[in-house]
Design a binder for these strands. Structure first.
Lengths: 221, 221
DNA sequence: CGCAGCTTTTACACTTTCTTAACGCCCTGG
DNA sequence: CCAGGGCGTTAAGAAAGTGTAAAAGCTGCG
């Protein structure tokens, strides 16, 4: 049985979500405020978190950031309409998906299933992008079945790129995920690591393409 | 069935508008003066408001401002020609579009349809306007599912236009949103970026139409 | 302590993007 | 007709972003 944690300040909304989730066999716990939500998450270790962005006190984004410092539990964002900027910020900070209030229960459940499945397959500990393979469990990489020696930073960087292979990954996203929870400002150094990676990937394998002013994209060879 | 509220002091005009709207299945209520209009809006909760700028008593702009304090109902401005300044002021105070008297019923109805259409961006953080798609998370744009290479400024500019697709965006609004937090004054350069965008959008896709003295409008193809 | 591997900093050439300026067009009003 | 404002278009210099190499810090280990 899966456990779900609801973090929302509206009592009505919590009640609705609890009903929907319990009818699907979830074990549900709630928190009406951000700080409490983090405590609940630490204590109950939920399998999925439903987080409202419009929280009083600790901001929703802030809750998400702190949660991501020690947990990679799937997070589904609940937000009101027309907050594109905040939504993007949430997704960039590690949220898995979001639904816009008001939403249908069918849609909510569908998205829950998707993000839980995605998280599960992501834990299958292997990312494949063309000839490139990343073994997350053993921190090993290979190209055309030939082992590829990568430093920890390079591995994390390539992982981010490979997860979104074929799509642009913003410099912000890269920095947030590779240098998560660090104070230093490696914005300059990112270029260097990209350079190292490109050398190790050689000319035959996938290419790391730059999108000026935006970020990078891993193109499968 | 949608409800429409007409705020205009001319009896003739109200009668004409009522006829047009009712023939399209709208439920119509009227007000001949600003203060009354606000009361009607609060009471009937219309789905769209048609507001004349040349009101006696409470100024049209003033009515709009007070309405926007508690409602985000779409507002269509009715104005006479050659009042560019006032039109801009109205748009920047939250009006959704305007028609110039005298107007054709076809044009009026078309504008109404556009401003009433709500956007449901549930999928991921993306804006869709006809064949045009903007993925805010990945900073990727596509036209008819073909990728569209845009520079950062072009992307931001197109984003503003696409968010209000079909409606007018004033030059001030564009500059404020695209060059937010910058000191330079790119008022001259805006034309250049519009030009670049038009070239990249080609002849088949959406068109960027200029409203002389006011701003720009993205017309879905 | 000194070494080795990794990360970050620094520097500079190079590329892409942005801004500025200039010019011609169209439209409107005198 | 001309004058003037707003707009589209183009080109060139300014600014910002990127690739690359090398050196300087950092950390753990023998």
């Amino acid at each position: 049985m899966s456990k779900a944690l609801i973090i929302d300040d509206e009592h009505q909304m919590r009640r609705l979500l609890r009903m929907v989730l319990e009818s699907r066999g979830y074990e549900v716990c709630e928190a009406a405020e951000g700080q409490l939500g983090l405590q609940e998450a630490a204590f109950h270790r939920p399998d999925v978190v439903l987080l409202d962005l419009g929280l009083p006190g600790l901001n929703g984004i802030e809750v998400l950031k702190r949660l991501r410092e020690w947990s990679d539990v799937p997070v589904l964002i609940l937000s009101v309409r027309d907050q594109e900027t905040i939504k993007v910020e949430a997704l960039e900070n590690g949220a898995d998906d979001y639904v816009t209030k008001p939403f249908g229960t069918a849609e909510l459940l569908a998205r829950l299933t998707v993000i839980q499945r995605r998280r599960f397959t992501r834990q299958s500990a292997e990312i494949v992008a063309g000839a490139l393979k990343l073994d997350l469990l053993h921190h090993e990489a290979s190209l055309d079945d030939a082992p590829l020696k990568l430093t920890p930073t390079e591995f994390a960087l390539l992982k981010v790129l490979a997860e979104h292979a074929g799509r642009i990954v913003t410099q912000n996203q890269i920095i947030k995920q590779v240098w998560a929870g660090q104070t230093s400002d490696p914005s300059e150094g990112l270029r260097v690591h990209i350079n190292h990676l490109r050398k190790k990937l050689g000319t035959t394998g996938p290419r790391i393409v730059n999108e000026p002013g935006i970020g990078y994209r891993l193109e499968e060879a």
